[in-house]
């Protein structure tokens, strides 16, 4: 399709089996399976930001592990820069790791407490045998100043315990930068940071992304953060993508009832206006017992007979906009539709 597609995931499945244990297997106890990701296709263009939004248990983190090849999918294909990387050998995979880096949610656990900041940031260079000692040190200091930890020389000899959450997350970002990756998979990188620090890290990430021409696969539960960070949004629910499209359009006019409800439920102050609370009848479904038909139908205020029986088709409601709902077009057409909940 498009020559600039950096990452393409096609029909990704990931099934975890809850093992019955060694003895259980011997006596033939049944093995439970959890379909964490159940047929997800996504594309991310070079230099763009795709936000993967979902609640807990939606499979967004699993999807992140899949596209960064930390775990391999049970089925499906992952292409990076046009090359099928799903089943790479470990040596080729190591080379690919230079191009795809990760940032994690918990800054307090992202760095080995026994290593100095300098050692931690240098680790990727050591693993990939890049540069001499002196060159490595220069790169580390450069990366630290890129993430605004200045003067860098003041930080290299300190330990993780001496730094605050915001600073630690900046170190994690610096650690990804030394390899000059083309894709960063960031799993809730600011959700554990305080408000006044969080915006600084978000702005930093955006600036780096623009200046260094990187692409982000940005995983978050927070739609407002996704709006601030991304060009496109994909919304996941119980292992599938229910809607995908350009950020502003999707938030302006969602085509899936779930997305609409998510947007409606975000608490936000508007002077003089009072929002109606969203009150769904059903309880959030657990990933272990996925409903038949449309996964959202037990909670969906628009659900009809067909929704509990048939899995909804993926409908292209507008160019670049798709939603997996039997009534996607109708929902999309009524911009002012307030779901009756």
């Amino acid at each position: 399709m498009n020559a600039s597609v950096l990452l393409r995931a096609t029909d990704i499945h990931k099934t975890y089996s809850l093992r019955a244990g060694f003895m259980g297997q011997v006596v033939g106890r049944k093995v439970d399976e959890v379909r964490a990701v159940d047929g997800v296709s996504l594309e991310l263009d070079a230099g763009q930001v795709l936000a993967l939004v979902g609640e807990s248990g939606s499979g967004k983190t699993t999807m992140g592990k899949m596209v960064s090849l930390v775990e391999r999918p049970t089925a499906g294909k992952i292409e990076f820069d046009g090359e099928d990387v799903t089943h790479l050998s470990s040596s080729r995979l190591k080379a690919l790791r230079q191009e795809v880096q990760m940032i994690f949610q918990n800054p307090y656990e992202s760095l080995d407490p026994r290593h100095t900041i300098g050692t931690s940031v240098m680790e990727p260079l050591i693993i990939h045998r890049i540069g001499t000692k002196g060159e490595r040190r220069d790169k580390v200091e450069e990366a630290l100043s890129q993430v605004e930890l200045r003067p860098a020389s003041k930080f290299v000899d300190r330990f993780a315990q001496d730094l605050s959450g915001g600073q630690l997350q900046r170190v994690s970002i610096a650690r990804t930068l030394v390899l000059a990756p083309r894709l960063i998979v960031a799993d809730e990188p600011v959700s554990m940071l305080d408000v006044s620090v969080r915006s600084g890290v978000m702005n930093l990430m955006l600036n780096l992304q623009a200046n260094l021409q990187m692409a982000y696969f940005y995983i978050t539960h927070d739609l407002a953060v996704a709006r601030y960070m991304s060009n496109r949004i994909a919304v996941m629910y119980l292992g599938v993508v229910v809607e995908e499209g350009p950020t502003d359009q999707l938030i302006e006019r969602a085509a899936h009832p779930y997305t609409r409800l998510l947007i409606m439920a975000v608490p936000e102050h508007k002077v003089g206006k009072k929002r109606r609370r969203v009150q769904l009848s059903g309880e959030a479904a657990a990933i272990k017992e996925i409903p038949t038909g449309c996964r959202f139908h037990p909670r969906c205020p628009l659900a009809k007979q067909v929704c509990s029986v048939e899995e909804p088709p993926v409908v292209t409601v507008a160019p670049g906009r798709r939603a997996a709902c039997h009534f996607a077009q109708e929902v999309f057409d009524k911009q002012e539709l307030i779901l009756n909940v």
Partner: peptide, 12 residues
């Protein structure tokens, strides 16, 4: 721990 995952992700 995240730092172990991170190191593996870097190619360790």
């Amino acid at each position: 721990r995240t730092y172990v995952q991170a190191s593996l992700g870097m190619g360790s």
